[in-house]
Design a protein around this nucleic acid. Structure first.
Lengths: 162, 162
DNA sequence: GTCGCTGCAAAGTCTTTGCAGAGAG
DNA sequence: CTCTCTGCAAAGACTTTGCAGCGAC
């Protein structure tokens, strides 16, 4: 293990994402800043859906020298969301979670015990959604679906602890 | 037009709902209060999905003598939600909206221009959802689906104003 | 009567905003 | 150089909580 920083451990996929991001910034005469890239990178590296607060924690741990403020997290997330680079999910009272929206479309299965989010795609459902919107004369921009329940893992644990 | 109060203009459907509610209260040794009934009634009469604030406004207008506090609205909505009598929907930053959950299950189509929510049900989708949960070893408790876009009406208006 | 419920106001959360200095273009 | 972006702290919006008095049972 050498002393490479995280910044050099980039995948091709991430490079493409970053290029898209820089293009977006340029197009809107926004500036490239290290904070903005770190936020993008952290979202990219995380498999999870992150709350602004969780994202802030991760960044403080990984890049403490940046002293990134929570306000910047919020501002950047808004910017990314407005540009359709990230998507947010709202929960009951657990606030809002963000994920990179560059990935292909998918829906969410949310465990009400542990909060874990599993992604899935179902073509039949996608197809029906389009048809329904059409039926109502509705111009669909987006759609989302959530299945709430107890995940496989928590079902096992429940068996042990309950 | 006579001077009947709203309380006497009850439908059979509402009476059943109210009976369910009273039963629920009794079962949990909660007390029946006029505020709680007014909240239930207002939710029942509204075709829309209401924010706690909107609900509060409606109640202040209809029953000013009660001086119902916003805290009571929140407390009662929580109570009703915990008891599965109402369901809440979360939105981007527009907060949370509540609807009576006593009705049969349905999904939502949300206009991003005017915020109007249209309900719909699609059997094919319901069926697929169960199948997907099963596939993942997930014990489904609930599910929700939202289609975001521009409603028929706003599409018309856009044609005129844009 | 008792004990839960209510309104009010104060306290929490979470998110946004104002501002002066730092830094990208 | 200019003008945006940032961190900080203060302000906002929304929701919850503490408390004393009121009211259901």
């Amino acid at each position: 293990m050498n002393s490479q920083t995280d910044f050099t451990q980039r995948t091709v996929e991430y490079e493409i994402l970053l290029a898209r991001f820089k293009e977006l910034l340029k197009k809107n005469t926004y500036k490239y800043t290290i904070q903005r890239e770190v936020i993008l990178e952290t979202l990219y590296k995380s498999d999870e859906h992150l709350t602004p607060e969780a994202l802030h924690q991760l960044i403080k741990e990984k890049f403490p020298e940046l002293k990134t403020g929570i306000a910047t997290i919020y501002r950047t997330l808004s910017l990314l969301e407005d540009s359709d680079m990230v998507t947010s999910l709202s929960f009951g009272s657990q606030g809002k979670k963000y994920e990179l929206g560059a990935k292909e479309h998918h829906d969410h299965m949310i465990c009400t015990k542990c909060g874990t989010i599993t992604e899935f795609v179902d073509e039949a459902i996608e197809e029906r959604q389009h048809r329904i919107a059409e039926e109502f004369g509705f111009e669909m921009q987006d759609h989302s679906m959530q299945i709430y329940g107890i995940c496989k893992n928590c079902k096992k644990l429940r068996f042990i602890y309950d």
